[in-house]
Every structure is written in C-alpha cells, then in structure tokens.
Design a protein around this nucleic acid. Structure first.
Lengths: 152, 152
DNA sequence: CGCTTGCTTGGAGTGCACTCCAACTCTCTA
DNA sequence: TAGAGAGTTGGAGTGCACTCCAAGCAAGCG
C-alpha cells in the first residue's frame, strides 16, 4: 500500500548458500506461486496461509485469479523468512506487516519491534555459543574415549 | 543406571545470569519437584512429562512415592535444558538419554549425535548473525527517519 | 480432444512440546 | 490435629505453525 522499506536487492547481505532452494528469477516481475515457493523454500500452502493471516501486502492476480508475485514481494518474503528463521512469532510478523501497511507514521513502533527482536537474537546467539562450549567439552570426552579404545 | 557423563558441576560454563530462575540448592541431595522447577525454570508438569517420555534417568522416590531429585539429576537437566534451548528436538534428547542408559559402548553414537547438533548450532549462529546485519540496517533507517522528523 | 500438471478455495488435520484437569494423598506449620 | 499447600496419576486439552484435503477451474501439449 505504501512504500516498502527493504534495502533495494542487496546481494551482500544474503542467505548463506544452500539455504535457499532457488536462484532468484530475473527479468520478469510476475512470478507464480510455485516459482516463489522454489525461491523462498516456503511451501505454496504456507504462502497462501501467510496471505490469509495478513502477512503479505496484497498479492497481485492474473486475469484468471492466479497469484502473481512481484520482486517486491520476494524482498518482503526474504525479510519474513529471516525473521521466521530467527524465531520471531508469526503474530509479531503480522503486527509488523500491519505497521508497514499503515505507512510512515509507524516508523517509531517498527523500530521498537525490530529492536526488541534484535535483543532477542543477541540473547540467543549468546545462548547458542555457551552451549557450543558444553558440546565441545562432551564431544571431546567421547572422542578421547574412542581414540583410547582404538589404540588398545 | 550407568555412570553419568557430565562435567562434575562446572561453574565456569554456566547459564548466563537471569536465565535460570533459582540458585542451585547446596548441601542436600534430595530435592522436591518444585525446588527443581524453581532451579531449572521448567514447570513441574514438564518435569513429570520428561520422566514419562524417558528423558530422565529414573528419579528416586521418597518412602511415600514423591520424587526426590539428586544433584546428578540437576546436572542432567542442565544439559537437557541447554539442548532444548538450542533447538534439539525432544525425540533426539530421548534418544541420547537411551544411549546414556546403555553405557559406554554407545560413546561413538553419542559423539555423532552431539556433533550433528553442534553443526546445527553453528549453522544457526551464522543465520542469526546475518539477520542481525539486516536488523541493524533497518533499525538504522527507522531511527534516522525519527531523528530527522524530530529535528524538523 | 483428452491428459497432465498447476492453481483456486475454505476448512479440517497434524506434530510438537507442553499444559492442565480431576481426584486424590502427603507434608508442614500452628 | 486441623488446614493449607505441596505432591501423585492418566488422560485430555492447548497453542503454534504449518499441512493437507476435496472439488473444481485453468493452461500447455500431442
């Protein structure tokens, strides 16, 4: 409805290779649901469901009523996919989508919402890291035991 | 049933402060379920459920049948809580618990299981980090806009 | 033209990880 | 010894995020 606030296709900040199923189709700007599914790794079911719950900013339709996604939609799905993979609840993503629809006067609240999620992500990185230490410790115990029994 | 394979109460590798609800009770070695719930942050319901599904190595009982957890159990729950917080499925944790019950001949498979999880954790750290970049980028856009409108 | 494959819908179903309930019994403090 | 507040069980219920189904329309190909 209003201007979308994504970085205009930034290849530097990109899902690491192997994470996404398809390369982004270039040229056209009216992708079918299965093309988008292949690109995002989300199922067509999930894409329709996202639309139903208000997580998509109105997807265009062909003359026969089939969905046609724009590359702007793909940008949005990139962000949504990222937020999802980093554990943001769907309800919060829907809230964010509403704010985007409402326009510029919601910038402050969008900032709060993303900042809260960023704090969350930072906490989880710390959590994962400290678990990594425990895993290293235990794995070493097991592999020491294995090497010892192989030598015996 | 067999020897537990946890580092013997290592205070250096510890849940970051604020994460765990209670400080570990010292001295005694027969904790009630609510003490354990307060310590681990898991609910008593969940502790009973973990036992039902085979995620606990047989908890001792009082003469009237109430659960009495040892500090060895707390060590185990520390590990389980960590694996849980880092996204290991309950089914995998049950599998690991079975391997521990079976004794030393399962060291190699335990190592495989934990190594697979470690790879997973590493992947997720990378994922979180790359999302952090995107969040920083967008938050900066919003706060720039806010500061600009405040100056205007 | 018929076949295969893909897209549409609302609503129902699934899997995971809890979470709660009813109907008790046990423990602790006054 | 009475009462409050713990603890016990099996089984049912919840919330989240999909995931699938049935029934039908649409598009490309030999």
């Amino acid at each position: 409805m209003t201007v979308m606030d994504s970085p205009p296709t930034e290849p530097s900040v990109c899902l690491e290779p192997g994470r996404q199923r398809g390369r982004r189709p270039e040229g056209r700007d009216r992708f079918t649901i299965s093309e988008v599914a292949a690109y995002t790794g989300l199922s067509a079911h999930t894409l329709r469901w996202y639309e139903r719950i208000g997580l998509m900013p109105h997807v265009d339709r062909s003359h026969t009523g089939q969905r046609r996604y724009t590359s702007r939609d793909l940008d949005w799905l990139d962000l949504v996919g990222r937020l999802r993979l980093t554990g943001m609840p769907v309800a919060d993503m829907v809230r964010y989508a509403e704010l985007v629809r409402q326009g510029e006067e919601t910038f402050a609240e969008r900032e709060r919402l993303l900042s809260a999620h960023r704090d969350d992500v930072r906490r989880r990185i710390a959590e994962l890291r400290s678990t990594l230490d425990v895993l290293d410790y235990k794995i070493e115990i097991y592999s020491d035991a294995r090497r010892a029994s192989e030598r015996a």
